Simulated assay, not measured.
Amino acid sequence: MVTLDFKTLTVPVGILRILEVIFTCITFSLVASAYYTTNSFWAWCMFTWCFCFCVTIFILVLELTSLNSKLPISWDDFTTSFAMLATLMVLTASLLYSIIFTCSGCGRQIAACVISFLTFILYAVEVGLTRAKPGEISGFLSTVPGLLKVLEAFVACIIFICLDFTIYSTHPGLQWCVAVYSICFIFALLVIILTIGRLLSRFPAPFNKVLIACNVLAVLMYITAVIIWPVYSFRDRQRPNSCPVICPWNIIIVVSFLTCVNLIAYIVDTVYSFKLVFFTTQT
């Protein structure tokens, strides 16, 4: 039996999700009405707003009809991880669209950027509301280490999008960096899938300690990538005189920056996980 629970729409999180649906709808409507282009970054921005719009409606409908309790997944982990993912995706889309596709006389594009940044704030507030507070019993993805796993996987995806095969294919050092991004991404994605699918209890080893060991290994691997990627990428390569926003030189800088971001994320993840396992457990 399907039972309607209208309280899910009146609680703070429900109100936030309704606003998110409205704002994402307005954003992609303004962008679509401005002009259409086959540019991959424009397509990414449109996909982001449409994807967040559809999934947020999906969450609202399932919670309104109480069907979320019948799904064989950890619903709290799913909604929290999606809110974190949507926060990162909308922030990226807002920055890309405002940098590449707006101008001083582009009224619709500017309005879309403003509403998109407001949508980012809404999703960020939702993450803050759904995140597990100290002392609460909740799923792993609702904790800081779990949210960091979503961040790490997302940053790795952006790195993959920016990678140019012609740059790293001839350098073993750069190929090692790509291997670092891939291995760490697979592990982060595996943790997310196991958590949402409620499969952590079947893990054949102490999950928390395995997680710390893998985080330490990821930190060491990313330290090498932070050093090797810029050394080999910029060797014998000078910045061209004509370098627009999207050019190989700038893409290399973006990958270098995102590598540092993920290194910091893994360090914080390791420290926080170590604190939760060895200090919180003892107390």
Results as ranks from 00 to 15, higher is better:
residue 2 V to I: 14
residue 3 T to I: 12
residue 4 L to I: 12
residue 8 T to E: 13
residue 10 T to G: 02
residue 11 V to G: 01
residue 12 P to G: 09
residue 12 P to D: 04
residue 19 L to E: 05
residue 19 L to C: 04
residue 23 F to H: 09
residue 25 C to T: 08
residue 25 C to L: 10
residue 28 F to T: 02
residue 28 F to Q: 07
residue 31 V to A: 03
residue 31 V to I: 07
residue 37 T to C: 06
residue 37 T to I: 10
residue 40 S to A: 13
residue 42 W to L: 07
residue 44 W to H: 14
residue 52 C to F: 02
residue 54 C to W: 00
residue 55 V to P: 14
residue 57 I to Q: 13
residue 57 I to L: 15
residue 67 L to Q: 15
residue 68 N to L: 11
residue 76 D to P: 15
residue 77 D to P: 05
residue 80 T to C: 07
residue 80 T to D: 04
residue 85 L to H: 03
residue 86 A to E: 11
residue 87 T to C: 15
residue 89 M to Q: 09
residue 91 L to I: 08
residue 93 A to L: 07
residue 97 Y to T: 04
residue 100 I to D: 06
residue 101 F to G: 02
residue 101 F to L: 08
residue 104 S to Q: 12
residue 105 G to S: 11
residue 107 G to R: 14
residue 108 R to T: 13
residue 108 R to S: 11
residue 109 Q to K: 13
residue 110 I to V: 12
residue 111 A to K: 00
residue 112 A to N: 12
residue 115 I to G: 09
residue 116 S to Q: 01
residue 117 F to N: 05
residue 123 Y to F: 08
residue 124 A to I: 03
residue 125 V to H: 09
residue 127 V to P: 08
residue 129 L to R: 03
residue 133 K to R: 13
residue 135 G to E: 08
residue 136 E to S: 11
residue 137 I to A: 13
residue 139 G to I: 03
residue 148 L to D: 03
residue 150 V to S: 07
residue 154 F to K: 01
residue 162 C to R: 02
residue 164 D to A: 01
residue 166 T to F: 14
residue 168 Y to R: 00
residue 170 T to A: 15
residue 170 T to M: 14
residue 171 H to T: 09
residue 173 G to I: 14
residue 176 W to K: 12
residue 176 W to V: 13
residue 180 V to S: 10
residue 184 C to K: 14
residue 184 C to R: 12
residue 185 F to W: 08
residue 186 I to V: 13
residue 187 F to R: 07
residue 189 L to C: 10
residue 189 L to E: 06
residue 190 L to K: 05
residue 191 V to R: 09
residue 195 T to F: 03
residue 195 T to Q: 05
residue 197 G to W: 12
residue 198 R to G: 12
residue 202 R to E: 08
residue 202 R to Q: 05
residue 208 N to A: 09
residue 209 K to S: 11
residue 210 V to T: 10
residue 210 V to E: 02
residue 214 C to M: 04
residue 218 A to W: 04
residue 223 I to G: 14
residue 226 V to T: 01
residue 230 P to C: 01
residue 232 Y to L: 00
residue 236 D to N: 07
residue 249 W to G: 02
residue 250 N to M: 00
residue 250 N to R: 00
residue 254 V to F: 04
residue 256 S to F: 04
residue 256 S to A: 13
residue 258 L to V: 02
residue 260 C to I: 06
residue 260 C to Q: 03
residue 264 I to Q: 10
residue 265 A to N: 08
residue 273 S to T: 07
residue 274 F to L: 11
residue 277 V to G: 09
residue 277 V to P: 07
residue 278 F to T: 01
residue 279 F to T: 06
